[in-house]
Design a binder for these strands. Structure first.
Length: 587
RNA sequence: GCGGGUGUAGCUCAGUGGUAGAGCACUUCCUUGCCAAGGAAGAUGUCGCGCGUUCGAAUCGCGUCACCCGCUCCA
């Protein structure tokens, strides 16, 4: 995905503020830190909890069609075999010996030509090298071109004006991936990079006991699909969502918490009927067209309507926590980017200071995952749809055959993956007409740590302000949406040497703290306390002043000053109405 | 994993071989009448870590760890 502008300095400021105020620390810092792992401090822990809660509420509690799951991090290793992670997570890598450029060893273009094997080189000032090196040159090119590359190689190893030795005769080689296509230089032996963290279950720690820390939370949902269906009276279309840790042994963790080795995912697997089932039940299938109404799911929606629906739902969610359209972007994967089993995938991107990068991917994955588990476990992962069975029974043989022929034509037109044979299509429809199908899935998969970073980056604002002495200074304000702010309200007695103010302030604090995260502060001048809370992102400050005590007349007695972080506006609010006033603005 | 950069107080940074510093922040006290006021006192460092060179290392060398940038990777 794209990178537009880089803003390293604002990122550095954000990292610094995160540490200073207790949002995010480096893991294991006293031992020098450990790459790709980050801890959340007091404010960060609250922020993350709030984000987690808003997601959970939006995805399951406020919906009738999604249920939750909380599965283990370590699961049966077969799960990762079935999902493809054991194979595809192992990327063989090879480096160019000359330029150090790195290649996916299995992605290097196949080449043929003459290979010249050099055994070393001698040079001026008795510099020399015994390191062997080989160069591939296209057929028809002279040996000198190979020699030129070899000289560069030995020069880079400290040999002055080198004369490579050996390599007099070229060797004919065909279809090799062992040389850099750009310059012909030899690549290192491919080394595997498995991105899954490995561990051992049980005391013996043999190869038989190998297990993996999950690299995504999604597979647990698929693995428990049958149990959820059997125990919770859900009917397709419905979803299962989960929040939890996932682990990837990234080659290069970077951009603060953006790419970490341990991270938290928030995933939904939303199971839908195959389009053929929709067609049988509803008579026709609605497909996406620009401007279609996505507000309420309809029984005749095809998979792409559901996909678009979830994109719009997710965008609505981001808007609800303060990430508006101005900071979001989208990337629709083209046919070439898509995995063979995926039908569509859109990334919701956020404009981070280091570039526009993915917050969430929403993929239409067909029935790939459940089918894989059905195949590997030998346990059926079908859903039985009563209404479908009844509707299918009413179809004529001709209608049935028309559906089958349509699918056969669709399979024949496939350009990716292995198309189903006619026999397989007929077997699939045989099950479908009896009411059985493996549901298709729409998968909105979001990164919680990325979201936390996004809202922090979005909230980070600097303002120049003159202090009482007229000296301008830069102040940092974290304009976090009140719904996710770690501290909702700061409670301050105007002065701490007046026991009446302090006593009243403690009363107000005790009143509020049962309902929201509050912070009591009586140190330093009031302006400083406001400023501290601005950096923590606290949306409201409540100050107990002399009016509260009734010194300015009875009508102001038992009222407090409520100060808004973003506008500096002040309101007089009765203590008896304060809780309601705040709750209304935090909802 | 490769190349480049950085690492000194909580934060930002100065300090190029000779007793570890500044600003801000922090703690306590005084003061205080709404946006980082003022005064006084105080605490804070294995100069990222290890090894070496040296009479002596934050400073020089080697190694290592972490972070940043660029490659590479991101199923």
């Amino acid at each position: 995905m794209s990178t537009d502008k880089k803003d390293t300095s604002s990122m550095e400021k954000l990292v610094s503020l995160c540490k200073r105020r207790g949002f995010i620390y480096q893991s294991s810092e006293i031992y020098g830190g450990i790459g790709g792992f980050w801890d959340y401090g007091p404010l960060g822990a609250e922020l993350k909890r709030n984000l987690r809660d808003t997601w959970w509420r939006a995805m399951t509690r406020e919906r009738e069609d999604v249920v939750g799951l909380d599965a283990t991090i370590i699961m049966h290793p077969q799960i990762w075999k079935a999902s493809g992670h054991v194979d595809t997570f192992t990327d063989p890598m090879a480096d160019c010996l000359l330029t150090k450029k790195r290649f996916r060893a299995d992605h290097v273009d196949l080449q043929s030509g003459m290979v010249y094997h050099f055994t070393g080189a001698t040079g001026e000032e008795s510099t020399k090298s015994d390191v062997p090196f080989a160069v591939l040159t296209p057929f028809g090119k002279p040996r000198e071109s190979a020699l030129k590359v070899a000289k560069l190689f030995y020069e880079s190893r400290g040999v002055k004006t080198p004369e490579p030795t050996g390599g007099e005769q070229g060797e004919k080689v065909e279809n090799t991936r062992a040389y850099n296509p750009e310059n012909g230089a030899q690549l290192t032996e491919p080394r595997p990079f498995n991105l899954m963290f490995k561990t051992y279950v049980g005391p013996t720690a043999t190869e038989k006991d190998v297990a993996y820390l999950r690299p995504e939370t999604a597979q647990a949902i698929f693995a428990q699909f049958r149990n959820v269906v059997d125990s919770s009276r859900v009917k397709v279309p419905f979803g299962i969502c989960q929040i939890g840790k996932a682990f990837r042994n990234e080659v290069t963790p970077k951009n603060f918490t953006f790419r970490s080795r341990e991270f938290e995912q928030m995933e939904l697997e939303f199971f839908i009927k195959p389009d053929e089932a929709v067609e049988i039940l509803a008579g026709s299938v609605v497909t996406w067209s620009e401007g279609a109404d996505l507000s309420t799911p309809q029984p005749n929606w095809g998979w792409d309507m559901w996909h678009r629906y979830w994109v719009s739902q997710r965008v609505e969610y981001y808007n609800s926590i303060g990430l508006g359209t101005d900071v979001l972007d989208y990337y629709w994967q083209g046919p070439d980017d898509l995995a063979h089993y995926a039908r569509a995938c859109v990334d919701i991107l956020f404009k981070f200071p280091f570039g526009t990068e993915e917050l969430e991917g929403i993929a239409a994955r067909g029935d790939f995952d459940l089918s894989q588990h059905q195949k590997h476990s030998g346990k059926p992962q079908e859903f039985f749809d009563d209404e479908l069975k009844v509707a299918a029974a009413k179809l004529t043989d001709g209608q049935k055959e028309a559906l089958i022929q349509k699918r056969i034509a669709f399979e024949a037109a496939k350009t990716k993956g292995t198309p189903l044979t006619e026999a397989e299509v007929r077997a699939w429809f045989d099950r479908l007409f009896k009411g059985f199908y493996v549901p298709h899935v729409i998968e909105p998969s979001a990164g919680l740590d990325r979201l936390a970073l996004a809202v922090l980056a979005q909230a980070f604002t600097e303002e120049e302000k003159a202090d009482v002495n007229g000296k301008t200074e830069v102040r940092t304000i974290m304009r976090l949406h009140p719904r996710i702010a770690p501290i909702k309200v700061g409670v301050f007695p105007l002065l701490k040497n007046k026991p009446e103010l302090v006593g009243k302030a403690r009363e107000v604090y005790d009143l509020l703290k049962k309902h929201m995260n509050c912070f009591y502060d009586e140190t330093a001048a009031i302006g400083r306390r406001y400023a501290r809370q601005d950096e923590a992102g606290t949306p409201f400050g409540v100050t107990i002043d002399f009016e509260t005590l009734g010194e300015k007349g009875d009508e102001l007695k038992d009222t407090v000053t409520v100060r808004e972080r973003d506008s500096n506006a002040q309101h007089r609010v009765k203590i008896s109405e304060l809780l309601g006033w705040l709750l209304q603005r935090l909802a």
